[in-house]
Design a protein around this nucleic acid. Structure first.
Lengths: 268, 268
DNA sequence: CTCCTGTCGTTTACGTCGTAAATGGCCGGG
DNA sequence: CCCGGCCATTTACGACGTAAACGACAGGAG
């Protein structure tokens, strides 16, 4: 399964925003002249993403977004029906970045494992590029109960199912794989970005006295204290990779044995 | 009423709110008389949870919560510093319901697998009892980077690590298990509640003409259409169980082989 | 050139929000 | 009896989302 080249030696995360060519970056903006004014739905959505990335989700208001675009708040309503739909548009735009990622393919031309691996890393790249937006991707109610985050578009669901079915999966197995894959991506990536957020977010504490900070009393939790350095290690990339490979392994068994795994079946 | 009969055999979900004795239910409220007035931090938090469960997260405002308690909004500020901290308190209260769950233990007295299984189901019960609150549990920035949702309290982290270490896991394996377990819980439960939300949420559309509804054009997605019935099946309980068992299986291997699994190691 | 019509951003306005500050009722100990 | 502390209310302010009316300006038709 070749796989997209992987980690050189230690550390370097291939999905981190700086660590790659530049897919999963900002929206190019539609207008040809692309000068200052000339609003546009794409531009509004792009500015919203940019704004959330840099100021945080809570800071996004119609008025401020307007100001960011050099325009009054009400001008935005010509391109977006309201704030909620603006956020929906943001979510849609962000996952649409997948289409622009040259490493992610819509079909399983190099095998389903390659397909799933590339797709997973593509989504991870997006999550890491927009850590403040990803929780929105994760929690906004999907259009239909069977469109699951983070692959929130019919087109990707279709692509996913086709890829697996074309590769020999039964329809049941493909659907069940879709569910397992969604859970896996959502859990790992949401945890990873929420953790990333905490590294900076605790609203810069301009403590006059850096000593005696309000560090909660840890004496009741000796194990946590003892393992603090282990717990603080950021192994996101390795964990992601390992969980992904485990999932692929499970699916391989399902494919080989041609069945949907069921409770009560004898193991392996 | 020993449960309103529900699905007879196949489906009965042991974690669904009706399907159990009654752990993971509302807060008992502290005051003995427990009549009308006599505000209280516990009561405020309890009312907030109740309110979110019944009206949705977006509907919660200080003023409305006040009204719900028969009180003006400003009265709440005597018990809670502000809206954000109110939400933090809600999250904390909700996971504290774990302590009241007789099926969840703090130690691994019946083996680590029993411990993890009970804990997982306890959290799932909470998620299903408060589907509108759970996204908050999942996305609120945690206190420290190594306190991961959904087990957002030092006490549970301590309990988790101790349980595994006491059962023979190395410190590294215990930490790595903690991470994998968190991802698993978060992904599955968030997906499950978000899906549950969609079943009802699409703001009741009082369409005059039930025909020709704005159903998006599905003709471009034949596989999705063909598999719609499969996709719509709600197999949450089984998926959860299967993924949990798979995780336990992985951990068993880690424990037996006394190592932290690493990329590149020969597979089983 | 003038006028008409459509597009698009601005102005104004309203109701609601979170919350700081001042106010007022009540209650138990001197 | 009064009086200080507790605790809910009242009042007030700035920011928010958005409905509605209002210009400003462009380009085609006469």
């Amino acid at each position: 399964m070749t796989e997209p080249d992987t980690l050189p030696d230690e550390g370097a995360d291939p999905d981190s925003p700086e660590g790659r060519g530049g897919a999963a970056s900002v929206i190019p903006a539609a207008s040809p002249g692309s000068g200052r004014s000339g609003l546009d739905r794409r531009r509004v959505l792009g500015a919203a993403i940019e704004f959330i990335d840099s100021e945080g989700l809570n800071a996004l208001t119609m008025r401020r977004l307007g100001a960011h675009l050099g325009v009054e708040a009400m001008a935005l309503y010509r391109y977006v029906p309201g704030r909620e739909q603006l956020l929906d548009g943001v979510v849609e735009s962000v996952i649409d970045e997948l289409y622009g990622d040259p490493d992610v393919h819509l079909g399983a031309s190099h095998g389903w494992q390659d397909y799933l691996q590339r797709l997973a890393h593509g989504v991870r790249r997006i999550a890491l590029a927009h850590p403040e937006v990803f929780p929105l991707v994760a929690t906004r109610p999907p259009a239909a109960p069977w469109v699951r985050p983070p692959l929130r578009s019919l087109r990707w669901v279709e692509s996913f199912l086709d890829a697996l079915i074309d590769s020999g999966f039964s329809e049941e197995s493909a659907v069940s794989a879709y569910r397992a894959y969604s859970s896996f991506l959502l859990g790992h990536l949401l945890l990873e970005v929420s953790q990333k957020g905490v590294k900076i977010s605790p609203e810069d504490q301009p403590e006059g006295v850096p000593e005696a900070v309000a560090a909660t009393d840890l004496s009741a939790y000796p194990t946590v204290v003892r393992l603090e350095s282990l717990l603080s290690l950021d192994e996101s990339a390795a964990e992601f990779e390992e969980a992904l490979e485990n999932l692929l392994g499970r699916l391989e068994v399902v494919l080989r044995e041609g069945r949907t795994p069921r409770r009560g079946d004898p193991r392996t």
